[in-house]
């Protein structure tokens, strides 16, 4: 298929940036979206132009690196997938496809379609862990009984790959689905309950400090999330913070 691509080009963090039109031809419908981007970049390199910078790593929907806003949606028009899992069969011959970076004040553009998502790392560092010494004396995983229901819910929350599609899709650039998932995955398990109050307080404080917006429950994040993280995780985080705040005056 032949396509027209409208792509955000930005030389560096200080550059103003603009949309640039490109044409690609003979794109197979079996290609992934990133393979199509590779074809375009080869084309650009061959013609002596600067290739388009975009994030990618595992290309199998696990690492959370790919991050394109395609035709007005995070990870494009398909559901439950990352950009690397998006196939060109979702588009038609002659289509014009708009490709932009995640847009949020807390995710500044580094170059072209690459954004700086270290704000998520700092939120994780504020409390997204349990303080356990694991060197040399690791306990058997079954030593602490955990209900199947809690284990399943914690696992579902832990499926978050931190790609930032929730922030990109939210009209408020809110990170609450991400933080809700990270708070939940520990809050549901006995090992995580010990530090639950400090964790949620510190992670929410860091989230606010990073300049993410507030959640208005539109549910866009849940729809666009490639890993099916649900709004229940945000509700749980809301409860966890309320509980934690009641404990500390």
């Amino acid at each position: 298929m032949n396509l027209t691509l409208k792509i955000w080009r930005q030389k560096g963090p200080q550059d103003k940036g603009k949309m640039v039109d490109y044409k690609v031809s003979d794109i197979s419908e079996h290609m992934s979206f990133l393979e199509m981007m590779d074809v375009l970049n080869e084309q650009l390199v061959n013609s002596g132009e600067e290739p388009i910078a975009f994030d990618h790593d595992c290309r199998e929907g696990i690492c959370g690196m790919c991050s394109l806003h395609i035709n007005g949606e995070a990870h494009g028009p398909d559901r439950g997938i990352t950009t690397c899992q998006l196939h060109m069969r979702m588009f038609k011959d002659g289509d014009t496809i708009t490709i932009e970076p995640w847009r949020a004040k807390a995710f500044p553009v580094i170059k072209d379609l690459v954004v700086d998502r270290t704000a998520f790392e700092r939120i994780q560092q504020a409390g997204g862990y349990i303080s356990v010494n694991t060197s040399g004396n690791t306990q058997d995983a079954n030593a602490t009984p955990i209900s199947k229901h809690a284990a399943d819910e914690a696992m579902d929350a832990a499926a978050c790959i931190g790609c930032g599609a929730c922030v990109a899709s939210c009209k408020n650039s809110s990170a609450m689905l991400f933080v809700g998932a990270k708070v939940s995955q520990f809050a549901l398990l006995p090992q995580g309950k010990v530090e639950a109050a400090d964790r949620v307080r510190n992670m929410v404080a860091q989230m606010d400090l990073e300049g993410f917006g507030n959640c208005t429950n539109t549910g866009a994040c849940e729809v666009e999330c490639p890993k099916g993280i649900t709004l229940e995780n945000i509700a749980r985080m809301n409860r966890e913070l309320f509980k934690a705040s009641l404990l500390k005056f």
């Binding site: 409208k6 955000w8 949309m19 806003h69 035709n71 007005g72 949606e73 028009p77 708009t98 932009e100 847009r103 949020a104 004040k105 807390a106 899709s169 009209k171 408020n172 650039s173 809110s174 300049g211 993410f212 917006g213 507030n214 208005t216 429950n217 539109t218 549910g219 866009a220 729809v223 666009e224």
Partner: peptide
């Protein structure tokens, strides 16, 4: 919330994932 997205999308398909009311 508006300040949290200082540069708007050129194309944003909000209707694909949320209600007009929300």
């Amino acid at each position: 919330n508006k300040a949290a997205r200082n540069i708007k999308y050129v194309r944003n398909n909000g209707a694909a994932n949320s209600s007009w009311m929300s």
